[in-house]
Nucleic acid binder design. Structure first.
Lengths: 154, 154
DNA sequence: ATGTTATAGTTACAAATGAAACTAATTGCA
DNA sequence: TGCAATTAGTTTCATTTGTAACTATAACAT
């Protein structure tokens, strides 16, 4: 009986994945690279995690959201949002009050301090996005938008 | 003096990001969705993490790699690779010996048991990739490949 | 040769994350 | 009404991950 811990020869029949041509792998590398470049701009400077920044970004765009609505908009789970909000409120970057008619719900907004951070970070994020897109010509940029939107639809 | 913890009005001058049109955000959502779909196929079935699967995939493709080379090929850091390998060797899925001429280096390969898992999981991963690509027509598929390769170059 | 520097990999500890249980408030409905 | 089910959010605990320090070996330079 062959020892299953021994190295096994790799016959041609195995058909291994070629990661460098495998779409999910390429997406993962690209996404991590781009997200990390943006995070590097604000993490040390503001002691702000990626999660926290995403929460701030949606609160800048939509006013008076509840924590659950933030979770929906950011595609994060509610525990992650709860923790990010705890830190943001503690740091005085987000204001939280309870909904008039429903004491379970929070009503969230950026504070003055939160807006200051937002107004510094948002342009940096946009600049990084432009850096990525600058590698493509106009036609490729249009296709990329179209393709991503199609893949993300539904 | 205004209380910085109070909610601040959101004037038009703030220019918040529109996450749903922000490339890094869309990439992140798409990448996580696709990777998770693949992971769901094997995680419970084989008690295999994403990290471990990536290590197995490169060992299927390239034979006799060292841990450092695995880290390079997977774009993972060496600690993550070390931990994944510890589990894979313990589970009898990867064989490890030391390099003849350099006792620091390991020489890695899949075992028979490792190949069995690989030969089951790799086709599932390819099927998921096809599911994603099936949302696009042939022209879009070609542009996507071209665009991703351009963005990932260097 | 011998001390310095670099490389391969592991270990240790802290921080981040995820799943499940929990509290509190609200809704639905018999 | 009153009791079960649902919803919002938090807490707890176990696992994962990331950073830095560490061990061992090898390469390099005098």
């Amino acid at each position: 009986m062959p020892n299953p811990r021994k190295p096994a020869p790799a016959g041609a029949e195995h058909a291994p994945l070629e990661l460098e041509h495998f779409l999910p792998y390429k997406l993962s590398i690209l996404s991590n690279t781009v997200s990390q470049a943006i995070a590097d701009d604000y993490q040390q400077r503001y002691d702000l995690s990626v999660t926290e920044w995403r929460v701030m970004a949606v609160l800048a765009r939509f006013h008076g959201l509840s924590a659950r609505e933030v979770a929906e908009r950011t595609a994060m789970d509610k525990v992650a949002v709860s923790r990010a909000l705890a830190r943001l409120v503690e740091a005085g970057r987000v204001h939280r009050e309870t909904h008039g008619g429903d004491k379970r719900r929070s009503v969230l907004s950026l504070t003055e301090a939160g807006w200051l951070i937002h107004d510094d970070v948002a342009p940096m994020a946009r600049a990084r996005e432009r850096e990525v897109l600058a590698k493509l010509d106009a036609e490729e940029q249009q296709w990329l938008t179209r393709i991503l939107d199609k893949l993300l639809a539904h």
